[in-house]
Amino acid sequence: MTLQALLVVAAALFGVGLYGALSQQVVVMVMMGLELMLNGVVLAAAAMWWFLAPDPTGQVLILVVVAAMTVEMAMGFAVATLLHRSRSADMTDMATDLSR
């Protein structure tokens, strides 16, 4: 188990998540892609912490990333609920006007 090995696995997770975030049409599946990307970020941050500078600052940074994941999911669910309620939409293609 080396720094490079952990970072390559993290890159693979990030790549898979990026594919999901870009390709999926269902809002919740897009959120799953974003979660996978952040999963890779958490693993990469843990690798950096352990192999480069194992002081508490790195752990605090990882906790911030985990908190960001929580906020992303909570707000994503809330927006998806509102979309479903207001226009029965669960696909990103049905809400493209929100990007304007």
């Binding site: 720094l3 490079q4 970072l7 390559v8 993290a10 890159a11 693979a12 990030f14 790549g15 898979v16 990026l18 594919y19 870009l22 390709s23």
Partner: peptide, 18 residues
């Protein structure tokens, strides 16, 4: 396009790591 972006992202990040 998503597959290309994902593979490119993995190659870029993985290559950088190595």
């Amino acid at each position: 396009k998503a597959v290309v972006a994902a593979v490119a992202g993995f190659v870029l990040l993985g290559g950088g790591a190595l």
